[in-house]
């Protein structure tokens, strides 16, 4: 009997832990959605901030985040994909590959603020790009690299070996096989990884604190050397630097909701992709 009692208590507490987790996470989504929705209107997406950040929209921040994200992916995707191709299709298995793998693994664990320091020292100062879209994109790109490599590698590994053999058997070269057979087959998986990275990059704040972001710009950036407003940084700045906390908090709710929505939309697309891919493979 005692045995069953313990089991009951045990499973109940596990159940409780799950309920609490879901409750807390539900709260976050609920509060931000509930308060954020009242702020969101057309103007919020299209207007520049007005009256000391208490009115108007956050369009420059949206645009800034868009540029930073695109820049980061443009930098990280070719590099990450090339790395994944090397590891999956060429890797001669040895010390070289182990060193590369270890670096990727450890790069993934570096704190985001440390990437920010690196970007500050190297891109902003050493290369003299200044606080700019370029510096921020490169910093974010390096941060996104491990994730892009991992997902591309997974996609490449999922391509059946028989496709490679069949392609080589009709006289295709190694490179032709990769370009015309392996990459097209792996494309949905690679795209899923890219989409997920977009979500991660768009929401990052710490790496752009010292490399790209600023609280306020007049209008929109005009070159890759401009500093920009960015959504996540905008939330931080509204909460800590402003002079009208009450009104600014409202706007921060709106920005948070946009970020939240972005993350959900991206995850939904990624899950859909994965689902469809599974169907294709069966």
């Amino acid at each position: 009997m005692k045995k069953n009692m313990t089991q009951f208590i045990g499973f109940s507490s596990v159940y409780l832990a799950t309920v609490i987790t879901l409750f807390l996470l539900g709260m976050i989504v609920y509060f931000i959605a509930a308060k954020g929705f009242s702020v969101l209107d057309w103007e919020f997406f299209t207007e520049v901030p007005k009256r000391g950040m208490t009115e108007g929209g956050v369009a420059p921040a949206i645009v800034g985040t868009f540029y930073l994200t695109i820049g980061a992916i443009v930098f990280a995707l070719p590099l990450g994909l090339a790395c994944a191709i090397y590891l999956c299709e060429y890797s001669p298995k040895g010390i070289v590959v182990n060193v590369i793998r270890m670096s990727i693994y450890n790069l993934a664990g570096v704190p985001s603020v440390v990437f920010g320091l690196f970007g500050l020292a190297v891109f902003v100062k050493y290369f003299g790009f200044g606080v700019s879209i370029l510096s921020g994109s490169l910093t974010l790109g390096i941060m996104a690299l491990p994730r892009i490599i991992a997902s591309s590698e997974e996609a490449l590994l999922a391509v059946p070996q028989s496709y490679r053999e069949a392609s080589l058997a009709v006289g295709a070269t190694h490179w032709q096989t990769i370009k015309k057979m392996v990459l097209p087959s792996a494309l949905p998986g690679i795209l899923t990884g890219v989409i997920l990275s977009i979500g991660a990059v768009a929401g990052e704040t710490a790496p752009i604190l010292f490399t790209a972001a600023t609280f306020y710009t007049r209008g929109y950036p005009d070159s890759v050397f401009s500093e920009v407003m960015a959504l996540p940084y905008h939330i931080y700045a509204l909460m800590t630097e402003g002079t009208h906390p009450a009104e600014q908090t409202e706007i921060a709710y709106g920005c948070s909701l946009i970020l939240l929505f972005l993350v959900f939309a991206i995850s939904a697309v990624a899950i859909f992709f994965r689902y469809r891919q599974r169907i294709v493979h069966e």
Partner: peptide, 13 residues
């Protein structure tokens, strides 16, 4: 995948 800034904001307000 929820950005840390959103958690921070939630914690703060």
């Amino acid at each position: 995948a929820i950005p840390s800034i959103v958690y921070g904001f939630f914690g703060m307000v």
